[in-house]
Design a protein around this nucleic acid. Structure first.
Lengths: 209, 209
DNA sequence: GGTTTTATCAAACAATTGTTTAGTTTTGCA
DNA sequence: TGCAAAACTAAACAATTGTTTGATAAAACC
C-alpha cells in the first residue's frame, strides 16, 4: 500500500473513533487497533495525535471553499436556484460524512486546537461573505427581500442538519423508519431535510416561487 | 457552607470547565482547582467523575419537563401563543446556560455515559410527544396546516440556537456587535433568535397572524 | 466534655496516556 | 546482489489520569 493510502486509511479509522468517543477519549492505541497498524505509526506518519487531527480537518475542508465559489459565480443559475443547490450539496455532504461532522461539532465547542480553530474561522467567514453576495444578487433582481440575516440563515441550515444527524435514532423511531435500509434511509433523510430547509429559506429570503 | 451548596459550587465550576475543555479533557485536578477544593472531594461528594457529570445533567434537566407540561396544558393560551412562549423560554434558557448546553451537545455526540443518554432519550421523546399534542390542537382549531414534521421543527429550533451559541463570536463580528455589554448582548441575541425562529415556525406550521 | 460522625487534606496508588527509542524488516534503486 | 532509505515493531519512557488511603481537623450529638 502506498504511503498516501496508508495515511488516509489511518485517518478514516481515526475519524470513526473520534465520532464515537471524541478526540480526547480516543487513544492512539485505539486508533492504531482500529486501523490495524502499530501505535508508533501515528507519530511516524503525522508527527503527533494533534497533528493527525489537523490533517483530518485539512483533508476534509480543502475542497469545500472552491466548490461553493464555483457555484456562486455561475451566471446561468438563478439566485434561489443557487440556494437550492447550496442546501442540497450541504445536506448530501453531511449525510455522507456523518462521523466527521460530529467531530467538527465537538471541536467547535472545545476550541482546543488553535490550528483547527483558525481553519474553521477562515472557512466560515468566507462562506458567510459568499452567501452575502448571493443574497445581494437576489435583492438586486428583486426576488429576495431586504434585510436578510445571512449568518442566522446559515446557522439554521447547519444547525438543523447537524441536530438531525445527532438525533437520527429518535427521528427514525418517531417516524417509524427504523427498518429502512442504510441507502434508502439516507435518501429519505436527505429528501425530508431538503424540503424542510427549502421552505424555511423561502421564508427567510422572502422568495415566492 | 452547607453540603448542598458545596456540591452545587463544585458542579458549577465543573460545568464551566467542561464547556471549555470538554469532559474528557477536564481532569479532576482542574475541577478541584477551579472550585478551590481538594481533588479528593470530587470522589467524596459524587462518588466519581462520571457520577458528577450525571449529577450535573440531573440538576439541569429536572425542571424542564414540568415547565413544558404546565405551558401546554394552559387553556387560556392560543396554540401559536404557546409556540411563541416555547421558543422564548428555550432561547432564554440556552443563552443563560451556554456552558451547559455546550456540554450537552458534546455528550449527545459522544454517547459515552449510558445514564445520561437514558435521561436525554426520555426527555426528548416526551418533548416531541408534547409538541405533537400542541400541533394537533392547532390543527383541530384550523390554525395550523396538516402534515407537520414535529421532530424536524424541534431540531431546527435547537439546532439554530445551538449553532449561534457555538458561533457567537463570528455572529457578533459579522454584525458589528462586538463591543456590546454582556447583558445588552444577551438581549440582542435573544431578540434576533426569537424573531428568526418565530418566522420559521409560522412557515412550518402554516400559521397566519 | 467526651465521642462519634463528617469533612478535609497530602500523599500514594495503579492504570493509562502520547511519544520516543533502538532494533528489525522491507523496499527501492544502483 | 548489495546497500542505504523507508517502514515497521515491541518495549520503554515520563507524564498524567481517576481514585483510594490514612491521618487530621471540624462539627454534631448526647
Amino acid at each position: 500500500m502506498e504511503v498516501k493510502d496508508k495515511k488516509r486509511h489511518i485517518l478514516e479509522s481515526a475519524e470513526k473513533l473520534f465520532a464515537v468517543k471524541g478526540f480526547e477519549a480516543s487513544t492512539v492505541r485505539d486508533i492504531a487497533d482500529e486501523a490495524g497498524v502499530n501505535l508508533a505509526m501515528i507519530s511516524y506518519y503525522f508527527g503527533s495525535k494533534d497533528k493527525m487531527m489537523e490533517s483530518l480537518f485539512h483533508e476534509r475542508m480543502i475542497n469545500t471553499k472552491l466548490k461553493v465559489q464555483q457555484l456562486l459565480s455561475n451566471e446561468h443559475i438563478s439566485p434561489f436556484g443557487k440556494v437550492e443547490i447550496m442546501l442540497d450539496e450541504y445536506i448530501k455532504k453531511v449525510i455522507e460524512n456523518q462521523a466527521f461532522y460530529k467531530i467538527l461539532l465537538c471541536e467547535q465547542v472545545m476550541k482546543k486546537n488553535p490550528e483547527i480553530i483558525k481553519m474553521l474561522r477562515e472557512l466560515k467567514m468566507e462562506y458567510a461573505a459568499m452567501f452575502t453576495e448571493l443574497v445581494k444578487e437576489g435583492q438586486k433582481k428583486k426576488v429576495f427581500k431586504k434585510h436578510v440575516d445571512v449568518v442566522l440563515a446559515l446557522n439554521t441550515m447547519t444547525g438543523t442538519v447537524t441536530q438531525i444527524i445527532i438525533n437520527k435514532d429518535y427521528y427514525l423511531e418517531f417516524n417509524n423508519l427504523e427498518n429502512l435500509q442504510e441507502d434508502e434511509l439516507k435518501k429519505v433523510l436527505h429528501c425530508k431535510l431538503y424540503d424542510h430547509l427549502k421552505n424555511i429559506f423561502k421564508t427567510i429570503l422572502g422568495y415566492e416561487s
